[in-house]
């Protein structure tokens, strides 16, 4: 679970999310950076694509809104998938206008990159020479992606400094709707059923997952939405605290366990 306030993230916030990505950019590498929560594809040291299990892919985004029919997507994959030029084919064949594809793909790239670059203890791997079948659209500098990822973390914490709604299933609170809720947030509220997570709702609405995090934090700040399972965490933490040994000279490991338990509250 991501710490709610200070802690290890405090350091990460002011440095680059992935120093390895910075090195790969410097050596103008081509390949795939596989991280815990997603993959970034580089060509010549620039980010050309990103994907994450937490975010809807460009196929979901385009087909859910009606910009592209399912057959159109599969036609493109069939015709241009192995040649790794699916995006180009979508535009050339008239399935999707060029500007719309750029907007959608860029949105999906930054969306997946945000999750892929989330703090993790799992080491990343880079596979040289690998490229993605979507093909070239609009490359983005590694610096821009890293900066934007940090800016997005700060934006979320400014709206509402509790990250639980980012990952846990969300549900409506008992508060009545006493102030107008913007239509886009209202649709999210309707799907907050105690089972779906932000990623589930994003997929269902064909909307960027980061946009969902923003909407959920706003709804949480308004007291209309909360994460399910909030009660479960303190119980587990209390168990951890009870098991702590009593020593006159607490060592670093003990302090770490205390901190983890407090963060889990």
């Amino acid at each position: 679970m991501r710490p709610l306030t200070a802690g290890p993230d405090e350091d990460a916030r002011h440095t680059t999310p992935s120093p390895m990505l910075q090195r790969l950019a410097a050596e103008r590498a081509t390949g795939a950076l596989l991280r815990d929560r997603g993959t970034l594809y580089l060509a010549d040291g620039q980010v050309v694509h990103a994907e994450s299990p937490a975010t809807p892919g460009i196929d979901i985004l385009l087909t859910t809104g009606g910009a592209l029919r399912h057959e159109g997507w599969w036609d493109a994959v069939a015709q241009a998938g192995a040649g790794q030029r699916v995006a180009r084919y979508l535009v050339d064949s008239g399935h999707v206008p060029g500007g719309a594809l750029e907007l959608c793909h860029l949105g999906a790239l930054y969306d997946a990159a945000f999750f892929a670059l989330a703090p993790t203890r799992t080491p990343a791997r880079f596979r040289y020479g690998v490229s993605h079948w979507i093909g070239p659209v609009r490359p983005v500098a590694v610096d821009a992606v890293q900066r934007e990822t940090l800016r997005r973390r700060e934006l979320l914490d400014r709206i509402w400094p509790d990250a639980l709604t980012d990952t846990a299933p969300v549900t409506r609170t008992a508060y009545p709707l006493d102030a107008p809720v913007p239509p886009r947030q209202l649709r999210v509220l309707e799907l907050a059923d105690g089972v779906r997570t932000a990623s589930d709702i994003a997929r269902e609405l064909g909307r960027s997952a980061f946009h969902l995090l923003v909407d959920l934090r706003r709804l949480a700040a308004a007291g209309l939405v909360e994460a399910v399972g909030r009660e479960a965490a303190p119980g587990a933490a209390a168990h951890g605290l009870a098991a702590l040994p009593e020593t006159a000279d607490p060592d670093v490991a003990l302090l770490r366990r205390l901190r983890d338990a407090l963060e889990a509250l």
């Binding site: 795939a32 993959t39 594809y41 694509h49 994907e51 809807p56 892919g57 196929d59 979901i60 087909t63 399912h70 997507w73 599969w74 994959v77 069939a78 015709q79 241009a80 998938g81 192995a82 040649g83 790794q84 030029r85 084919y89 690998v130 993605h132 079948w133």
Partner: peptide, 24 residues
């Protein structure tokens, strides 16, 4: 080739993918 698309193609589509796309 990265993560597979999230909408599953039929068998014919998959066959075409390997046959035709190399030309592009």
């Amino acid at each position: 080739h990265g993560k597979l698309p999230e909408l599953l193609p039929d068998a014919g589509t998959l066959r075409n993918l390997w046959v035709t796309a190399v030309r592009d």
